[in-house]
Design a protein around this nucleic acid. Structure first.
Length: 891
RNA sequence: GGGCGGCUAGCUCAGUUGGUUAGAGCGCCUGCCUUACAAGCAGGAGGCCACUGGUUCGAGUCCAGUGCCGCCCACCA
C-alpha cells in the first residue's frame, strides 16, 4: 500500500459515505439477541439544510451510536424529518408566489398537492447531507411526521386524549400571529424589549360635572374595545368612582368602573382600561366581572367593523389616528416614554395579537405531573442534571397547550362538526358518520384546523416504530435508550414527548436525555442566517473533511456547554487527520522496505504483543504501547459512555499524536532492519496501529474506515467494516506498569537531554557523551539498556553511576536522577540563567510543604498518604534545590 | 419579579468526589527542510484561577456576598 503524501479527505469521504448506506451496514434487527441501543433523531425540518447545530448534535450522536455498535449492541438510530407546519407552508407559499399562485386562489387540496410536490423535489436535502457526513442511521427506517403511519398515530393519540377528557375545545384568548394567520402556542412567542410610549388618556366620568379619570395604556388603539375601567379595591384615590360609569371617548360607550385586585395601584395612574377582547389580563377580568368582550381587530390586526370610522386601518395606523383624535379633543393628559415587552411570533416576526378565538387545547396538568414523576423517580435521567431544575420548573408551572393551528399543512384535527353544531371526534370520517347517524344528525364538515407540529413530534419516539400497533420494533427498541438534543427545544419537544409518551404508552419515551449546547461563532454570537455569521458545515466538510469538522465540534465543547467554533480550529484537526494518515504511510513504507508485503495484522489478543523471535521477549516499545492502548481504551470507553465527548477527543488526540507517533513510532524506527520480513515486532506495530484506528473510529469515521480497510485487506475473517469491528475493551490484567515506568524514565532522560542541548545550542547531529547519576537502579537500568534510543532520540551516550553526582558535575536535575553532559565550559555557562529560573518555584514549593508539615493540624488531620506524599515531595524539592545550588556554584 | 449558567495563559476552553510546582489546543518566541508528516520536529515564554469574606490542617474546587457577561421563565396595563 502506498499513500499519497498528504491526506485529501474529499477523495475518500463521499465514497465511504455512499458505501455505508448502500451496504446497509447500520440496519437494526428487531429480533436480534444482542442488547438493543436505540435513539430517534431529533427530526430536522424537511425544509432545512444542515447547519452547524445539526452537525454538532449528529457528531455526538454518531460517536455514541458507532461506539455502542462496536461494543456489540443492536443499534437503532432512527432517522427522519419533520413536516414543520408553519415553516413549510410559508416557504411553499413564497415559492408559489414566484409563479403568481396564491394559496387561497387554488384552495386547500391543490395547495397541499403543491406542498407534497415541493417536499418530494427539495425536501430530501438534509437527509442527503446527513448521509454525506456519515451519520450511521438505519436509513431503511427513515420516517416523516406526515407519513400515513405517523398520521395514524397522531389521530389515535388525539382521540384517546379526547376520550380521557384531556383535549377540549373552546373560546379563549390565544396568541394570534397576524402574519401567518394562525394561533400559536405560548412557546412560539418570543419576547423582546422595545422602546414605546405610555399614553395617559382622560375618560370623562358620567354625571360628575366634567370630572374625568386618567387611564394609562401602551395600546391606545384597543380602547375601541374597552368595556370597563378598573381600579384597585383598596385605592383611596378612586373610592368615589365605585358604581359610577365613564364615557369611552370617540366611541361614546358607557363603561362601568370595576374594582379588581389585578390592578397595580403603583403603576401609571392606578386606573386601567379594560379591553377583554385584546388583553389576556383584561380577558380574565372580563370573565370575573361578566363584561362584554368586544373584538375590534380582525385576523390581520386591522380594525374591524366594531371600530366604527377606524375600520380598515392597520393597528399601528389606528394607534396614530386615535392618539391624534384624542389630542384634538384634549383627552391626552400626557405621553411618557416607556419600555415594553413585545411578544413576537417566532415564525412571522410580527407582534403577536392576543385574540379571542375558538381553539383546541391539551389539558396538561395531569400529563405534566406524570412527566415530573418519571424524572424524579429516575425512569428518565437528564444529563447534565442542571437541566432537571428547568424541566421541573416549567412542568410545574405548565399551562394548557393550544394545539390547533389555522393552517393547511399538517395533521388535520380528527373532529367533525355535525349539522346541529355538535362535534364528533373520531378515528375516521366513516366512524364520525356512524356516530352522527346514531345521534340522528348529518355531518356538516370536518374541522378545518391542523395540529401544532410539536403534537406529532411529541409522538416521534413511538409513532416511528409503528405505534399504536404492537410491533416488533416497539418491543425491541422502545423505550429508547437515549435522546440527544439541544436545550432550546427542551420544552417544545422533550417535555411534550415525556407527557405524550407516558400517556400513550405508559412508558417513558427515553431512558436518558443528554442536553447539548449551542454552536456559536468566533464572537460567541448565535449563528443565524440573518446575522450572516453561519459557517456551513458542508462547506467545511468539503474543505477540511468531515472528520476534522466533527472533531473540532466535539472537542470544543465541555459537557453540555456551548461551542465557540472557529475555522482555524477545524483546520487544526485536519492536521490531526493528516498526522494519522502519515503514521499509516510510515507503517506502509517501512514494511515495504522490510520486504513484508503482507499487511495482515496478526490474530492476537487485544492488548498482548508478541515476543521478539530471537530474544523471546517482547520489546519495551511494544510492551509500553500495548499497555498505553489498554489505559486509553479504558478511558475512551468511560468517556463516551458518560457523554464526555470533549474528553474522549482530547484523550485520543493526545494518545495518537504524543504517544503513538512521538514515541512509539520513533522507537520502532530504531529496530527497523531492511529486508527483515514480517517479524513479530512489525506484527505488533500493525496490531497497535489497527487498535488505534478502532479507538478513533467513532470520532473520525472516514479516515479510520479508509485506513483500516487498507490495513486489514488480507486479514481472514475480518469484519466488513471497521464500524462493525469491536471497540477495544481492556481487562484488568492487560496493563504493564513495569513497561510504563521504564518508558517514563526513558522519556524524561531524553527530554532532559534535549532540553540541555537546546539551551546550550548544541548542534543536532553532534553526539554528546555524559553520565547519568541515580540512586534508583531502575533509572540506571534504563540508561544501560536503552543506549540506542538515547543516542538516536537525544543524541547522547551515557554511562551510569550509582548515587548522586559529584558537586558541579550535573547540568540537569530530575527528582530521581542527575544528568551530566560533557560540554565546553562556555556552553555550560549558558545554563546558569536557566538553573536559576528553576530554583525559584522549587524553593517556593519547598517552603509551602515545610510549612504545612510543621502544622500539627495538617499532620493530624490529613490522610496518611497525603502527609507521606508531601514528605517525599519535600525531600525531593530539598534534594533538587541542593543539587542545583551545587551546580550553580561550580559553573 | 423568579431561576440558570459563565468568569482559569494573548484567544477558545478542560480541570470528575477539596490534597504534588493548575492543564490542552491555537497563537507567540528560539532552533531545525532528521529519509511518515513544514498540515512537520525539538525546545521555550506566558496564570493574585473575577472580587470580598467564610468553612477547613488544606480551596480553582465547598458556603455566603459583590461585580460584570450570557440565557431561560413570568399575568407589569
Amino acid at each position: 500500500m502506498r499513500l499519497e503524501k498528504a491526506y485529501d479527505p474529499s477523495r475518500i469521504e463521499p465514497r465511504w459515505a455512499e458505501w455505508w448506506v448502500s451496504e446497509g451496514l447500520f440496519r437494526a434487527k428487531a429480533g436480534s439477541s444482542k442488547p438493543a441501543f436505540s435513539l430517534v433523531i431529533p427530526p430536522p425540518n424537511v425544509t432545512g439544510a444542515l447547519h452547524m447545530g445539526h452537525m454538532f448534535e449528529t457528531s455526538q450522536i454518531d460517536i455514541t451510536m458507532r461506539w455502542r455498535r462496536m461494543r456489540g449492541a443492536n443499534v437503532l438510530w432512527l432517522p427522519g424529518t419533520d413536516h414543520a407546519g408553519i415553516a413549510t407552508q410559508m416557504l411553499v407559499e413564497r415559492h408559489l408566489a414566484k409563479s403568481g399562485i396564491e394559496r387561497r386562489d387554488i384552495g386547500r387540496e391543490r395547495f397541499l398537492e403543491h406542498v407534497w410536490d415541493w417536499k418530494e423535489t427539495y425536501g430530501g436535502r438534509i437527509v442527503g447531507q446527513l448521509k454525506r457526513v456519515g451519520a450511521s442511521c438505519d436509513w431503511s427506517r427513515e420516517r416523516f411526521t406526515l407519513d400515513p403511519g405517523l398520521s395514524r398515530a397522531v389521530t389515535e393519540c388525539f382521540v384517546r386524549l379526547w376520550e380521557q377528557g384531556l383535549i377540549y375545545r373552546g373560546e379563549y384568548m390565544v396568541n394570534w400571529d397576524p402574519g401567518t394567520l394562525t394561533a400559536i402556542s405560548d412557546l412560539e412567542v418570543e419576547y423582546a424589549h422595545q422602546q414605546g410610549f405610555l399614553w395617559h388618556l382622560r375618560y370623562p366620568v358620567e354625571g360628575a360635572g366634567g370630572e374625568s379619570v386618567v387611564v394609562a395604556t401602551t395600546r391606545p388603539e384597543t380602547m375601541l374595545g374597552d368595556t370597563a375601567i378598573a381600579v384597585h379595591p383598596n385605592d383611596p384615590r378612586y373610592c368615589h368612582l365605585r358604581g359610577r360609569t365613564v364615557t369611552l371617548p370617540l366611541v361614546g360607550r358607557s363603561l362601568p368602573v370595576i374594582s379588581d385586585e389585578f390592578v397595580d395601584p403603583e403603576f401609571g395612574t392606578g386606573v386601567v382600561k379594560v379591553t377583554p377582547g385584546h388583553d389576556p389580563n383584561d380577558f380574565a377580568a372580563g370573565q370575573r366581572h361578566g363584561l362584554k368582550c368586544v373584538t375590534v381587530l380582525d385576523e390581520e390586526a386591522r380594525i374591524n367593523a366594531n371600530g366604527g370610522r377606524y375600520e380598515g386601518l392597520d393597528r399601528y395606523e389606528a394607534r396614530d389616528r386615535i392618539v391624534r383624535d384624542l389630542e384634538a379633543l384634549g383627552l391626552v393628559e400626557r405621553v411618557e416614554e416607556y419600555t415594553n415587552n413585545i411578544g413576537r411570533s417566532q415564525r412571522s416576526g410580527l407582534a403577536v395579537e392576543p385574540r379571542v378565538s375558538t381553539q383546541w387545547f391539551v389539558r396538561t396538568k395531569t400529563l405534566a405531573e406524570a412527566a415530573i414523576r418519571a424524572v424524579e423517580e429516575g425512569r428518565t435521567e437528564i444529563v447534565p442534571d442542571q437541566w432537571r431544575r428547568n424541566y421541573f420548573e416549567w412542568m410545574g408551572n405548565i399551562r394548557d397547550w393550544c394545539i390547533s393551528r389555522q393552517l393547511w399543512w399538517g395533521h388535520r384535527i380528527p373532529a367533525w362538526h355535525l349539522e346541529d353544531g355538535s362535534i364528533v371526534v373520531a378515528r375516521s370520517e366513516a366512524e364520525a358518520r356512524e356516530e352522527a347517524s346514531r345521534r340522528g344528525v348529518g355531518v356538516a364538515h370536518r374541522d378545518s384546523d391542523v395540529l401544532d407540529t410539536w403534537f406529532s413530534s411529541g409522538l416521534w419516539p413511538f409513532s416511528t416504530m409503528g405505534w399504536p400497533d404492537e410491533t416488533e420494533d416497539l418491543r425491541a427498541f422502545y423505550p429508547t435508550n437515549l435522546l440527544n438534543t439541544g436545550f432550546d427545544i427542551l420544552f417544545f419537544w422533550v417535555a411534550r414527548m415525556m407527557m405524550l409518551g407516558l400517556a400513550m404508552t405508559g412508558e417513558v419515551p427515553f431512558r436518558k436525555v443528554f442536553i447539548h449546547g449551542l454552536v456559536r461563532d468566533a464572537d460567541k454570537k448565535k449563528m443565524s442566517k440573518t446575522k450572516g455569521n453561519v459557517i456551513d458545515p458542508i462547506e467545511m466538510t468539503d474543505r477540511y473533511g468531515t472528520d476534522a469538522v466533527r472533531f473540532a465540534l466535539v472537542a470544543s465543547a465541555g459537557q453540555g456547554s456551548d461551542v465557540v467554533l472557529k475555522e482555524e480550529r477545524i483546520a487544526g484537526y485536519r492536521t490531526f487527520a493528516n498526522k494519522i494518515w502519515n503514521a499509516l504511510r510510515f507503517v506502509g513504507m517501512s514494511l515495504e522496505k522490510a520486504g513484508a508485503d503482507v499487511w495482515t495484522p496478526p490474530e492476537l489478543a487485544e492488548f498482548a504483543p508478541l515476543p521478539d523471535e530471537s530474544s523471546g521477549a517482547v520489546s519495551l516499545a511494544d510492551r509500553w504501547i500495548f499497555s498505553r492502548l489498554r489505559s486509553v481504551a479504558g478511558e475512551a470507553n468511560d468517556q463516551i459512555e458518560a457523554f464526555r465527548y470533549h474528553e474522549v477527543a482530547s484523550t485520543l488526540y493526545h494518545f495518537f499524536w504524543h504517544e503513538f507517533c512521538d514515541w512509539y513510532i520513533e522507537l520502532k524506527k530504531l529496530s527497523f532492519r531492511e529486508g527483515s520480513g514480517l517479524t513479530n515486532g512489525w506484527r505488533n506495530m500493525l496490531a497497535a496501529t489497527e487498535r488505534s484506528l478502532r479507538l478513533l473510529h467513532p470520532i473520525m469515521p472516514f479516515i479510520t474506515e479508509d485506513l483500516w480497510q487498507r490495513l486489514t485487506v488480507n486479514t481472514p475473517g475480518r469484519a466488513r467494516s471497521i464500524a462493525l469491528a469491536g471497540y477495544p475493551l481492556p481487562r484488568d490484567d492487560d496493563a504493564d506498569p513495569g513497561a510504563e515506568r521504564e518508558v517514563d524514565v526513558l522519556q524524561r532522560i531524553v527530554t532532559a537531554a534535549r532540553n540541555l542541548r537546546a539551551e546550550v545550542g548544541l548542534p543536532a547531529r553532534e553526539i554528546a557523551r555524559g553520565t547519568i547519576y541515580s540512586e534508583d537502579p531502575g533509572v540506571l537500568a534504563v540508561a544501560a539498556s536503552q543506549g540506542d534510543p538515547l543516542a538516536r532520540l537525544a543524541g547522547i551516550q551515557l554511562d551510569g553511576q550509582a548515587g548522586k553526582a559529584p558537586a558541579g558535575h550535573a547540568l540537569a536535575h530530575a527528582p530521581d536522577f542527575d544528568l551530566a553532559l560533557d560540554l565546553p565550559e562556555r556552553r555550560k555557562r549558558a545554563l546558569r540563567e536557566r538553573l536559576q529560573r528553576q530554583l525559584a518555584p522549587l524553593e517556593k514549593a519547598a517552603r509551602g510543604a515545610r510549612g504545612r508539615l510543621a502544622n500539627p493540624g495538617f499532620t493530624g488531620n490529613a490522610p496518611a498518604r497525603v502527609v507521606e506524599g508531601l514528605r517525599e515531595k519535600l525531600a525531593d524539592y530539598d534534594s533538587r534545590i541542593a543539587r542545583i545550588r551545587e551546580t550553580l556554584a561550580a559553573l
